[in-house]
Design a protein around this nucleic acid. Structure first.
Length: 576
RNA sequence: CGGGGCGUAGCGCAGCGGUAGCGCACUUGGUUUGGGACCAAGGGGCCGUGAGUUCGAAUCUCACCGCCCCGACCA
């Protein structure tokens, strides 16, 4: 494509609305424009990247035995009512009425539609397994769209659904999809890790989120580089640092004055004791009932873990008034000793330690020499805290890092949740009806594009992995006014195309060399070929990799070989 | 939905009671041409919308709309 004829509106200044690198660069490089909050239009360059991601997904899904279908974006309310999600989904489900006042939802995901489709055709176990996917526009009326295409209301998603005869067969399919996902993201040139996660609204028995590591990510992950253990903070388990005191206190537990000191830090400073010798006591309301959660002074309560352990639907921190009512003291002086009438949960890390300090349930007093089990009843121990950065990995003992990640895909084993409520059954070998066992597998296509930029950019612009780059080679004609230079560049354009490369040819006569360099850095094609009078005089052409600072200068006759060599190196980074 | 901020030229911004401005971009002519060139001449605005206050409103007041950020929420 000649730049002189292309629709690639690059922008020098950063639009004010953009916050994170991918959003800024997608606007600046002319990949997309915003139409309204949460809606974007993709310009030619953006669309080319999307098509590349789609193609990789198609190839890997087909390799894994899935078949492509296409479902409507408008879905009838009755299907959602069958599974109860018409009520449960909330405002995110975009509801619309047609001219006959009939209710529909714009599909945010398609479990109901696909289950309906399959149940109408599924008769015998001989038709299973069945694994179907589509790449289609999804609509979710997000509370707060942000970060450009990272969290938009309309977006492109690959969603796949599998149907198997039983649990074991579903597991097998799940792991085939899991492997396919790893291949897809590797081929997209992304550093991506599957993490154990919570299953949320879709429900089901187990699930992985595929996270692209990037500082701007919305989710925190505990990650071990040594053994590649990775888990969502809601699930992650680490080995805590040793307790401050390992021997039981011989003295009896006694109150001390701590006037005006509420926090672990303040009381610790006053008593000259480390935070890890404290028991931090937080009062929560679980479905309205007060509970106390104990963690070590240097740890934080993980509310999702508490909520899941209790099986509660709602967990909120108690108000100061409620704390007063439950503990008999203001916030800051709660403790397990003498605490009556509430269920007490304690984090596992507290089990090992001794001689603790904790609130005395009296204003301005704390207790020292506290022994759990001696001074108060043994609580319900479980994992109730968040992993801390630098803690040891449970699997290999190496330090865990807390990193941020962008969720680009998720795999769920659904079980029979949908096939049961929607009666998606087949006749088994035993001549009886059985519910199909389902899995579902999503990839945010447009989000993957943003994540790729998030992971591959510098101060000048994008650095596309060659597998996603809109064009593999950016050819720059530096001196368009000089006929012999222009002629040479034109020839390279033809030769490179003939050699099978996708070439963006900056043939503009009005743009200066410097302008073209800046545009090339911004657009981020992995390779650029620079044809100028300076080099041409000596018979040399510059070939520059976007990731390298300096170009290679090669004789005219060797340009294609050098391009081939560099391209091969780039492809190695995107090969599974 | 709570808190904060912003709406002025295509983009980035200034102006904050008295004739609507700057930089970039755009058009024309000329000179340039290896890291976002220079000179000259131009075009482009219901100052988000509506109501008020005022002799006079981009500027003050109120309401509404839109957008952005933080939070709650999130396959």
């Amino acid at each position: 494509m000649r730049v002189s004829k292309a629709f690639i509106p690059t922008v020098k200044e950063t639009p004010g609305e953009a916050e994170i690198p991918s959003h800024k660069l997608m606007l600046r490089a002319g990949l997309m424009r915003k139409v309204a909050s949460g809606f974007y239009e993709y310009l030619p360059l953006g669309q080319r990247v999307i098509l590349k991601v789609n193609q990789i997904i198609r190839e890997e899904m087909e390799r894994a035995g899935a078949q492509e279908v296409l479902m409507p974006i408008m879905t009838p309310a009755e299907l959602w009512q069958e599974t109860g999600r018409w009520q449960k989904y909330g405002k995110e489900l975009m509801r619309v009425k047609d001219r006959h006042e009939r209710d529909y939802a714009l599909g945010p995901t398609h479990e109901e539609v696909i289950t309906d489709m399959v149940r109408r055709e599924l008769k015998s176990y001989k038709q299973l397994p069945m694994n179907l996917f589509q790449i289609a526009t999804k609509f979710r009326d997000e509370v707060r769209p942000r970060f450009g295409v990272m969290r938009s209301r309309e977006f492109l998603m690959k969603d796949g659904y599998s149907f198997d005869v039983d649990d074991a067969a579903c597991d097998k399919t799940y792991w085939i999809m899991f492997e396919a996902y790893k291949r897809i993201f590797k081929r997209c040139g992304l550093l991506c890790s599957p993490v154990e996660a919570d299953s949320g609204l879709i429900g089901g028995s187990f699930t992985h989120e595929f996270m692209v590591m990037a500082d701007s990510g919305e989710a925190a992950i505990a990650w071990c580089q040594a053994c590649s253990y990775a888990a969502n903070m809601e699930k992650a388990i680490g080995v805590p640092s040793p307790s401050a005191v390992s021997q039981a206190a011989s003295e009896a537990c006694v109150p001390v004055d701590t006037p005006g000191k509420y926090t672990v830090e303040e009381v610790g400073a006053l008593l000259k004791l480390p935070p890890s010798q404290f028991i931090k006591t937080l009062i929560f309301l679980a479905d309205g009932k007060p509970i106390a959660v104990l963690v070590r002074g240097d740890h934080e309560v993980n509310e999702v873990k508490v909520q899941n352990a209790l099986g509660a639907t709602e967990l909120v921190l108690a108000s100061p008034e409620k704390v007063m009512e439950v503990t008999g003291a203001p916030v800051g002086f709660a403790g397990p000793v003498g605490l009556k009438g509430v269920k007490i949960l304690a984090d596992n890390a507290l089990k090992e330690g001794h001689d603790y300090v904790t609130g005395a349930l009296i204003k301005d007093k704390h207790l020292i020499h506290v022994e759990i089990g001696r001074d108060c009843a043994a609580p319900w121990y479980n994992d109730f805290r968040s992993v801390k950065d630098g803690e040891s990995c449970l699997k290999c003992g190496k330090p865990l890092k807390i990193v941020r990640g962008i969720e680009v895909g998720q795999t769920f084993k659904l079980g029979t949740k949908y096939s049961k409520s929607m009666k998606c059954v087949y006749l088994g070998e035993d001549s009886k009806d059985h519910e199909a066992v389902m899995g579902c597998y999503g990839i945010g296509v447009t989000r993957t594009v943003a994540a790729a930029i998030e992971q591959h950019n510098d101060a000048e612009g994008i650095l596309w992995p060659i597998s996603l780059a809109p064009y593999q080679v950016h050819l720059l004609l530096l001196n368009p006014a000089e006929p012999e230079v222009a002629k040479a560049a034109d020839q390279f354009y033809e030769d490179l195309k003939k050699a099978g490369y996708e070439v963006l040819y900056d043939d503009r006569t009005e743009a200066s060399a410097g302008f073209k360099f800046k545009d090339a850095d911004l657009l981020g094609m992995p390779l650029s070929v620079r044809v100028g009078s300076r080099g041409l005089k000596e018979g040399l052409i510059e070939i520059k990799r976007r990731r390298e600072k300096e170009p290679a200068k090669v004789p005219v006759a060797q340009v294609l070989d050098k391009v081939r060599e560099f391209a091969a190196e780039e492809w190695k980074l995107c090969t599974h």
